[in-house]
Amino acid sequence: MTWLDTAGDILASALEAMTPLLLAAAGGLFTELAGMLNIALEGLMLTGAFFGFAAAAASGSLILGVLAGALASSAVAWAYGSATLRLKANAFITGLAANIFAPSITAILSAVWFGTRSVVALDIPEPARPLQAFFGSTSILGRIFFSHHSLVYLSWVLAAGAALLSNRSILGTRIRATGARAEAVAAAGFKPDSYKLAAIILSGFFCGIAGASLSLPLGAYVPAMSSGRGWIALVAIYLGNRRPGRTALACFIFALAESFSNFAQGQFGIPSEFILAIPFAATLIALSLGTSAKRV
């Protein structure tokens, strides 16, 4: 194995690792544009991961799994958004509620449905690798870009869609305007809170799919499998200065760090705890160096 192959493998696994980050960041982008700090991304992802997996296991269909993950997560987002906006509760505390609710309710349901509170591995269909047949996996470029499962490509399409939605659509414009100048939106005869709620539900939708993209390719649900990715996505949005392209780049860099540390673990036998800590550490360092003074 040459160093070129190794680098190719790291890049390929980085693209795979980027999938949940990219989707969560796409979701978080909407709440961020609407002027809210959405710390619930983590819990929303976990909800999506569990319900996506459960639905896929029950129906045997990945598509239903993805949809169920998105819906369940949107529902939790709706509850979180309603408490925040309708009851005028503190957004951080309600966000915390979502983050604590997700692991609890999934563990309880997991115990009831699957008889275990820890890892659930079931025989669900493996996602297809749609481009592998056409472009082959022999060349390095083929392996980096065309060997992935369908959820990776779905995430690219959805991320592009989110960028389009936020920049070009009426809804996106309203959400942006709400974040930039809510009183102007109200003066134009709209309800800023409705657009905030819409942004929160959109973030739930995308995070749900992000969660499903964790559990479905793995064929298993692991408690706390989102492992901080919601927070990392949040930081990626800051580093990307709320621009879709730059945010995607930040996601890629974090994913690269993740896949590199996985590689390092295999290579140098670093304890798994440290490997798990690397994304948090990278995020903290990036946040400290990158976003100082950007957040107002």
Binding site: A83, A89, I93, T94, L96, A97, S104
Partner: peptide, 14 residues
């Protein structure tokens, strides 16, 4: 955890 989430959801409601 679930009960805690319920508490968090409503405790700061104004």
């Amino acid at each position: 955890g679930s009960i805690q989430a319920v508490i968090f959801l409503f405790i700061t409601a104004t």
